[in-house]
Computed example of a mutant assay.
Amino acid sequence: MTDQHPHGHQPHHHFETRAIHAGNTPDPLTGAVVPPIYQVSTYKQDGVGGLRGGYEYSRSANPTRTALEENLAALEGGRRGLAFASGLAAEDTLLRTVLAPGDHVVIPDDAYGGTFRLFAKVVSRWGVDFSVADTSDPAAVQAALTLRTKVIWVETPSNPLLGITDIAALAGIARTAGVKLVVDNTFASPYLQQPLALGADVVVHSTTKYMGGHSDVVGGALVVADEALGEELAYHQNAMGAVAGPFDAWLVLRGIKTLAVRMDRHSENATRVAELLSRHPRVSQVLYPGLPGHPGHETAAKQMKAYGGMVSFRVADGEEAAVAVCDRTRIFTLGESLGGVESLIEHPGRMTHASAAGSPLEVPADLVRLSVGIESADDLLADLQQALG
């Protein structure tokens, strides 16, 4: 595997070491220990067709983006990593690479609203159709397959209902059916979950979230197990052009260096938040895979290192009460997105998942979603206590 990791990364190194060193070779000219931001569009050629290091134009490749892409591949244990301008740009490039008009996809019944919109409003106009299935039930996924199915799409944990899908079980179904299994690993991050090792074909990330980790960059990624698919995706990445810019790639690479320690704290804090909420009289249900009562708890325990920083809950008094809780927090900031060091709160029905209203993916009106940050857990618990009243 050394040909994949030209920067001296050894695949057997532990995750924390790979996160800091993979793709991060000291600059040969100056010895700088961090890859420079190559804020450049084009490169001098040594004669016609003589490229230095394979670089000719920064849509095709840029050294800062290359560093990130090598790092992503190392973290997910894949053959090829690709960095994009956003998570949805990554998804769109993937779909247009592996699908053709007439093909069919199985998507989760609680997919991210933006992913649902991409299928329902964009890709469907291109002649690709989809079925919605409860991916936590392998039998339901099996039943949704048709002769035209090319992809099974999974989010685990899912957004915003924190559903858990058994990746290895679905990988078996996908292999037997000859279809690709795609796993959106945004909520878990590669530190907590490794879908390719469990049999997935492609991992998708919004690197905006935990990978970047500081709410200051928008980006996306694909990591694949198969070299040939990686080549095909790289061709389409260049042909379609929604690439990560060098500064954005640099910010994501910078965020990844602390991914392991951040995810440990996110998970610890979220566990304490979920336990508090599950005891609160104004909360009717808590959705967190770390709670023993969660229907996906055993599967999550099997395939995840810890349970992550996302917690959703339902407010007993209904929609207006849920909105009021979102308005009353002081440390939890009312805002969309997730995965940053600061805690966020939102109302999915009116905010992140409004695009799914009236569809099979509509979320409960009394649902509140938390992205639990890395602040003091005691302060976060006190904030939720006062907001719930």
Rank of each mutant, 00 (worst) to 15 (best):
L72Y: 02
L75R: 05
S58C: 11
P36G: 14
T42F: 09
L68M: 05
N62H: 01
I37D: 06
V33C: 04
N71E: 04
K44T: 15
T30E: 04
G49N: 12
T66M: 09
L51W: 10
Y38G: 03
L75S: 05
D46G: 14
G50F: 00
L75Y: 03
I37K: 06
K44F: 12
T30A: 06
K44S: 14
E76P: 07
L72E: 00
L51Y: 11
Y55A: 11
E69Q: 11
T66N: 09
G53Q: 12
Q45N: 14
A32C: 02
G49P: 01
G49T: 13
E69P: 14
N71T: 13
Y38N: 03
N71V: 15
P35N: 08
E56Y: 07
R52V: 15
A67D: 05
E69C: 02
E56G: 12
L29N: 01
E69L: 04
Y43S: 08
S60V: 06
V40F: 07
E76R: 02
N62K: 01
L68E: 08
A61W: 00
L29E: 05
S58V: 02
T42H: 12
E70R: 12
L68A: 10
N62S: 09
P63S: 12
Y57P: 05
N62A: 08
T30S: 15
S60F: 07
A73N: 06
L75V: 04
Y55N: 08
A32H: 05
A61C: 00
E76M: 14
T64I: 02
G53S: 15
A74R: 06
T64D: 03
E69V: 00
S60A: 13
Y43F: 15
I37W: 03
G31A: 14
L75F: 06
T42G: 08
G54D: 07
Q45V: 13
G53N: 12
A67Q: 07
